[in-house]
Measured scan of single mutants.
Amino acid sequence: SDEELKKRIEELVRRGNKDEARKLAENANSDEARKWWEKLEQL
């Protein structure tokens, strides 16, 4: 689900694993996940 995906992306970003988070968001084929990633990346 998008919610689970967003949690995983956020967790990866928090751990400093941005590349992994980006790949996850891009491969998810989910606009919501991509937007979430872009938002987190700004922080």
Rank of each mutant, 00 (worst) to 15 (best):
E3I: 11
A25S: 04
K35E: 15
K6E: 04
V13A: 04
A28C: 13
R15S: 14
D2V: 14
A21C: 05
A33Y: 10
Q42T: 09
R14M: 09
D19V: 10
K18H: 15
R8Q: 11
S30T: 12
E26F: 02
S1R: 12
K6Q: 06
L40E: 05
K7Q: 09
E10H: 09
L43A: 11
K6G: 04
K6I: 15
S30N: 10
E10R: 05
K35F: 05
E38F: 00
K23M: 13
L40A: 06
S1L: 15
E26S: 04
A21I: 04
E11P: 00
R15D: 11
K7P: 01
R8L: 14
I9Q: 00
R22P: 02
G16N: 03
G16S: 03
K7I: 08
E38S: 00
R14P: 02
L12G: 03
Q42R: 11
L5N: 02
K18I: 15
N27E: 14
D19P: 03
A25E: 02
K6N: 06
A33G: 06
L40G: 01
K7G: 06
W37E: 07
D2N: 11
K18R: 14
V13M: 14
K35C: 12
L24H: 02
D31F: 02
N27Y: 06
A28P: 03
E10Y: 00
K39S: 13
L5I: 07
D31V: 09
E20S: 04
A25Y: 04
L24T: 04
K18T: 14
E32N: 07
G16L: 01
K23W: 05
K18S: 12
R14E: 09
E4R: 07
N17C: 15
L24N: 01
W36N: 05
L5K: 02
Q42Y: 06
L24R: 01
R34E: 11
D2Q: 10
R34I: 15
V13C: 11
R15W: 03
E20Q: 10
L24Q: 04
S1W: 15
E11D: 13
S30R: 03
K39V: 13
E26V: 05
N29E: 12
W37N: 01
A25V: 15
Q42K: 13
E3Y: 07
E26G: 03
R8H: 08
Q42N: 10
S1C: 14
S30D: 09
S30H: 05
E41D: 11
E38G: 00
E41A: 14
W36H: 13
L40D: 02
E11K: 00
S1I: 14
N17M: 15
K7L: 08
E20W: 00
E20H: 04
N29M: 12
E4V: 10
E38V: 00
R15P: 02
W36P: 01
A33K: 05
S30G: 07
L24C: 09
E32Q: 08
D31A: 11
G16R: 01
I9R: 00
A28V: 08
K23E: 11
K39W: 15
A21K: 01
D2F: 15
E11N: 07
E41I: 15
W36F: 15
E32G: 07
N17P: 01
V13N: 04
K35W: 04
R15G: 13
N27H: 08
K39H: 14
G16P: 00
D2C: 12
L12E: 05
K35T: 07
D19G: 07
N27W: 05
E41L: 15
A28N: 05
K18M: 15
K35G: 13
K39I: 14
E4A: 12
N17D: 13
V13I: 14
E11Y: 00
L5E: 02
Q42V: 10
L24G: 02
S30V: 05
L40K: 00
R14L: 09
L5T: 05
R8S: 06
E4W: 08
I9C: 04
N27R: 09
R15E: 12
I9H: 02
I9D: 01
E10A: 06
R22L: 08
E32W: 09
K7R: 13
E38Y: 00
W36A: 05
E10C: 15
E41C: 11
R8C: 12
W36C: 08
D2T: 13
A33Q: 05
G16Y: 00
R15Q: 14
D19R: 06
R8N: 05
R8G: 02
W36V: 03
K18N: 10
A25G: 04
V13P: 02
K7E: 08
W36K: 02
E38D: 07
K23T: 10
R22Q: 07
R34Q: 12
S1P: 13
